[in-house]
Every structure is written in C-alpha cells, then in structure tokens.
Design a protein around this nucleic acid. Structure first.
Lengths: 215, 215
DNA sequence: ATCTAAACTGAATTCGTCTCAGTTTGCTTC
DNA sequence: GAAGCAAACTGAGACGAATTCAGTTTAGAT
C-alpha cells in the first residue's frame, strides 16, 4: 500500500497524478480547498487546466481521492502499530503513536481529511466521486471498527474500565484527530511531545490500570 | 444575548434575517454548505435571490454569521453553567453538560460550526466576512481561554492531575465537540445519555479525583 | 516509419454567485 | 391623507471558476 496510488494498477511513467496529488495536498492544506483555484494547481504542476481532467473527474474527485488515500494509510498504520503489541495498554499507546507518524505533508493531508469529513455524508452526483466517497466511508467504518476492537479487548482483559467500546473508540478518535486542527510543523510542540502526551491522555480516558511509560 | 441577532441593534419588525438564518442552518446543516444553493434558501424563505444581499454580503458571510452566533451562545452557556459551580470537578461536569443543551436545530448549527472551522484560518476578501471571521476567531480564543482557566483552577486545587492546562483544554474541547460529527436527533443515544457519559470521560481525562455523580 | 494510447491543449459552455439600477412597501410626519 | 423616507425587495445581466468539447502532441512499441 504505497503513499500515492490509484485506479490504474500500473502507473504510466509519464503520469503526473502523483505530482498533482502532492501539489493539491499542499494547496488545499495550506489555503483551504474552496479558496484554492483548480487552475492554480495546474499552473504549479506545469500543465494546462484541462489536463487535470485527464486524471480527475473534478476538483472534488481529487479531494476525495486525497482523503481516501489518507484513510487507507491510516488503517495500515494502525494495523502495523498494533499487531505486535503485547497487551491492551501497549496497543492503545501504539495506536495513538501511529496517528502521529507524519511528515509535514502528511499533517496537511490529515488536516484536509478532518476539514472535509462532512463531504462523506451526502451523495455525490458524478460516478467517480461517489465511488471515492463510498470507499472513504467504509474506511472510516473500518477505522472505527478497529479502534472499537482494541477498546473491547482492553475491557475484556480488565485493562480498561469503560462501558461502551464503540463510544469510547469515537472519543479516542476525536481526541487523537483533534490535534490536526491546531498542530503546525515547527510550532510550540513537536510530534514526539504530542505523541507522548496524547498517549497518556488516551490511557486516562479508558481508565487504564497502567499509564504508558515515559519515553 | 438572544439566539438570533445581528449588527442592527433594533431589528426592524419586517426583517427576514432571522428566518433566513434559521433556514440556512437547516439547509447547510442537513445538506452541507457547498451543496446548498443560495437560491434555494431564497425560495424557502419566499423572497427573490437578490433580496438575500440586503441581509448578507455573500453566502459565506451568512455562514460565518451562523458560526459566530453559535460561538457566542457557547461562550454564554459556558459562563452560565460554570459560574455557580462549588468546585472544579463540578465546574467541569457543568461545562460539559452546557455543551449538550441543544435543540435539533442547535445540533445542526454546531455541526456547521465544526465542519467549517477551517474557514477561520484564512483571510476573507470582503469587509463583513472578514469582520465576522475575526469575531469568530476571538470567540474561539475566548472559549479556549475559559476552558483553560477551568482546568488551571482544577490543577491548582489539586482536583485535576494534568500538566498542561491549555493542551488539556484543547483535548476536552475536541472530545466534547467531536460528538456533533455523529450525533443525530432520534439516534441511538439521547443528549442526556451523551451528557452523562461525556462528563465521566472528561473527568477521567483530567484524572479527576472525583468522578461525577450518576444522574 | 507507423501506430496507438496516454497526455495534453485552447476555445467555448455552464452554472452559481453576485452587482446594478432601479421599484415597492409600510411607517412617520406634517 | 399626501409627502417623505428608509428598509425591503426585484429582474436582468455580469462575472468567475469549474468543466466540456473537439481535437493535437508525445513517447514508446512494432
């Protein structure tokens, strides 16, 4: 599962899809989606405006693709981080930490995702947009499901003392992703610091017997 | 501080501003801002499209106004809820509860606010939009400041065991407002249930000595 | 050298937001 | 009860950004 891929399994070497996505992440993340003109991205990439339609059906289709890629990476990071955890407390810490493994561009991509979640709620008019939207929705569900599973296991273990696993998972997610609203690379806090402090907070939220070790 | 007011201190009796805002909340909240055509709102209200410009400089100006009103109400609810709290733990519970005093339309309004927070980050081209944006920003800051104050007092009391008051306040806010992403009136959980469970979660998050009493 | 599919282009279209140049409405004041 | 006035409103059209159309160019395979 690479960072930037899409429908065509084998990407043509002269394809600019990856460049377009990277540029769009920078622009959408920095200046906002609505505020960014589609034409600007074409200029940045160095192609005509209409060439963009060779790769994406619409500006929103590009946005949804960016969101879907991020969700898909997120699922993968969660899996990789939690699979070898010895116990529930460690799994929680690892899951939280996996959310903050991010390059500056990843941070932008996650901000974009957070800021446009509402797009996933309503049907899209065009074929490919709707396709990406549904993919996003099922990935969101998968993420919720994975976190719920983690919490449930902790409850069963006796490690976490909360009632409702799904609700707790949603709380943890809100807590974890909320960071992307204010985090800026080079800001007051580094991602390492954030990771530590959020892991502790998550542990308290589930009323974990064991608070994660300081790094 | 009424639910729907604006610049003109004394609203003309034949003004439709309040109706427009209510309609816009319903539409923007239900179908999304981008997806809602400005003309639709004019139709719903029963006026011509251009009449809207008598009240708002633009569609975004209307959106920002809705957000500003919600933020302003939120500040007021927080104040009213916490002023008479006997101790920090009670203040936290009251603050959380105040976030969920909401009619169905209020719920939509808070969803709109959450979904468009990113608008507050970048400068607006037109006069009134920018004015509302700056108001929104200072209200957001005020809210953060109020929550930070609450947490700091708890720390000083010895009631809460966390390090960073501002960061904790942000966590609490993320936790609390995250609910509006999934809450639906008539859904699996009522606002009363949400209030209780979120108050407990908030208490655990600050590592409060005292967990709030069950209702 | 030819063929093909991907990559690309400039010109024109569409569609929603917004401006303009006024008109109507209801209240106040004489 | 007519004149004056500001708020409320309107239809016609301008504007700007996304998108479509009708092709042309390019790079690599045969």
């Amino acid at each position: 599962m690479s960072t930037v891929d899409n429908a065509p399994r084998t990407e043509s070497p002269r394809s600019k899809r990856a460049v377009i996505i990277a540029t769009a992440i920078d622009r959408f993340g920095e200046e906002g989606f609505e505020h960014t003109k589609w034409a600007t991205i074409a200029d940045d990439v160095g192609i005509g405006q209409t060439a963009l339609y060779h790769y994406f059906e619409s500006k929103v289709h590009c946005l949804l693709t960016i969101m879907r890629l991020e969700l898909s990476n997120s699922v993968e990071r969660f899996r990789a981080a939690t699979e070898s955890a010895p116990d529930s407390a460690a799994a929680l810490t690892a899951a939280v930490a996996s959310a903050y493994e991010a390059s500056p561009r990843d941070a932008l991509q996650r901000r974009i995702l957070q800021n446009h979640m509402d797009l996933l709620a309503t049907k899209r008019p065009s074929k490919k947009e709707e396709e990406e939207r549904l993919l996003c929705r099922s990935l969101v569900q998968e993420i919720e499901h994975n976190w719920t599973g983690l919490v449930q296991k902790g409850i069963d273990d006796g490690a976490f003392r909360v009632d409702d696993a799904l609700l707790t998972a949603r709380m943890l997610l809100a807590l974890v992703v909320g960071v992307w609203r204010w985090y800026r690379p080079g800001g007051e806090m580094t991602l390492e610091q954030i990771t530590e402090v959020m892991a502790e907070a998550a542990a308290r939220l589930v009323d974990s017997a064991e608070v994660p070790a300081r790094t």
